[in-house]
C-alpha cells in the first residue's frame, strides 16, 4: 500500500461568514500528482492553505506527512509551496536567489546551472527578479521550489503567466518530480496541465 502523504476528510472552512469548503476530502500518496480543479471561488486556494497549515479548519480532519500541518521550519523542510508571488530579497539576482536556496539545503535535488537551463532563466540570471516579466518570475518561483529537496509540493495555479510551451515543459518537470518519489497537490485552471501530468483530478464545486 503506497505511503499516504496528504489525507483530508470532511473539511469545513468558513471565511467571513461564508462557507468556502464544506465536506471536502482529498488523499494523495507518495509519488502521486493530484490536481484540484473547479471554478473561481470554489475554495481551491483555501484547500491548499489548509494543507499547508496556514488556514485553520472549522471541522474535519487533516493529516500531512503523518500529522497535522504546522507552520514551522521542520514542516517546511519537507513541504514546498508556490502560491502568490513571494517578496524577492532586494539586491539579489535570479542566480543568487537560486544559489541562496542551494546554500540552505544540504542535498538539493538539482544544481543551479541545471535549474537555470530547465526553467529558461539562464539568459536572465544576472537580472533582479523585479526586472523579469510576470511569467519569468513565476518560473523563478517554481525553480526555487524544485531546486530544493521536498516530499510534498503544493502549487497554487502554477500555470499563472506561463506561455504554452513552458506549460508543457512544466508537466514533464512535475512528472519527473513525482517519479522520484515526490507528491504534488496543485490547484489549477489548466486542464492540459492536469492531463499532461496524468494527475488524479478532484473537482470542487461551489
Amino acid at each position: 500500500m503506497p505511503e499516504s502523504i496528504v489525507m483530508v476528510s470532511d473539511v469545513r472552512v468558513t471565511l467571513g461568514g461564508n462557507p468556502v469548503l464544506s465536506g471536502v476530502g482529498l488523499a494523495a500518496s507518495k509519488g502521486e500528482i493530484v490536481a484540484v480543479i473547479g471554478a473561481n471561488g470554489t475554495g481551491k486556494s483555501t484547500l491548499l492553505r489548509c494543507i499547508a497549515g496556514l488556514q485553520s479548519l472549522d471541522a474535519g480532519r487533516l493529516d500531512v506527512l503523518g500529522g497535522p500541518p504546522d507552520d514551522d521550519a521542520a514542516f517546511w523542510r519537507d513541504v514546498a509551496m508556490v502560491g502568490d508571488e513571494p517578496a524577492w530579497y532586494p539586491g539579489l539576482t535570479v542566480r543568487e536567489h537560486l544559489e541562496m536556496m542551494r546554500a540552505v539545503h544540504d542535498s538539493p535535488r538539482l544544481e543551479v546551472p541545471a535549474v537555470l537551463a530547465m526553467f529558461d532563466l539562464a539568459a536572465r540570471a544576472d537580472a533582479t527578479p523585479l526586472n523579469l516579466s510576470t511569467g519569468q518570475r513565476q518560473r523563478l518561483s517554481l525553480a526555487m521550489a524544485l531546486l530544493r529537496p521536498s516530499r510534498l509540493l503544493l502549487l497554487d495555479e502554477p500555470e499563472r503567466g506561463l506561455d504554452a510551451n513552458f506549460r508543457r515543459r512544466l508537466g514533464t518537470i512535475l512528472l519527473e518530480y513525482a517519479e522520484a518519489g515526490g507528491t504534488v497537490v496543485m490547484a489549477t485552471h489548466d486542464p492540459l496541465l492536469a492531463e499532461d501530468t496524468s494527475a488524479r483530478q478532484i473537482v470542487l464545486a461551489a
Binding site: 543568487e96 544559489e99 541562496m100 542551494r102 546554500a103 540552505v104 539545503h105 540570471a125
Partner: peptide, 24 residues
C-alpha cells in the same frame, strides 16, 4: 533602487543555513 541597476551574480558562500540566508 534595484529596478534600475545592472548586477553581476557572485557565488554564494558556503555557510550554515541561517547564515547563508542572512548573507543576503
Amino acid at each position: 533602487h534595484w529596478r534600475g541597476r545592472a548586477l553581476r551574480s557572485r557565488p554564494w558562500p558556503a555557510l550554515p543555513a541561517p547564515l547563508a540566508l542572512a548573507w543576503q
